[in-house]
């Protein structure tokens, strides 16, 4: 098995840190790699999570992406409308 999907998976397992780096190393078309990553996320093999960096010193309650219940908003889409897209992590899930 050595198709684009398994190539992308192999790169992730090997620790290639960014999508752009996977494109460069695999030689695959950029759109194919991004489609493969999207598919891996949809199929549950990879977890995608938006990160909120640098929490406020006041703790989770002061965080723009904290939930209403006060739980930390780390990785949750921000409730603040119009917030810029931030860092997204993709984590490989063992299956």
């Amino acid at each position: 098995m050595s198709g684009p999907l398994s190539t992308v998976l192999a790169e992730m397992q090997a620790g290639t840190p960014t999508v752009a780096e996977i494109v460069r190393r695999s030689g695959l078309d950029d759109s194919v790699v991004r489609a493969a990553v999207d598919h891996l996320v949809r199929s549950g093999r990879v977890e995608s999570r938006e990160l909120s960096m640098g929490c406020p010193a006041s703790g989770c309650g002061g965080c723009a992406s904290a939930t209403e219940e006060g739980a930390p908003g780390c990785g949750l889409p921000s409730p603040v409308p119009g917030r810029r897209a931030g860092l997204v992590t993709l984590t490989l899930t063992r299956r």
């Binding site: 992730m12 090997a14 960014t18 640098g54 723009a64 931030g86 997204v88 993709l90 490989l92």
Partner: peptide, 24 residues
């Protein structure tokens, strides 16, 4: 667990967001 990151493009910081984060 391996992890990869999809990096957002660089952008010019906005005054509103910078001020808001600093104030919080």
């Amino acid at each position: 667990e391996p992890l990869i990151i999809d990096l957002p493009a660089y952008q010019v910081p906005t005054l509103r967001l910078t001020a808001s984060v600093t104030w919080v």
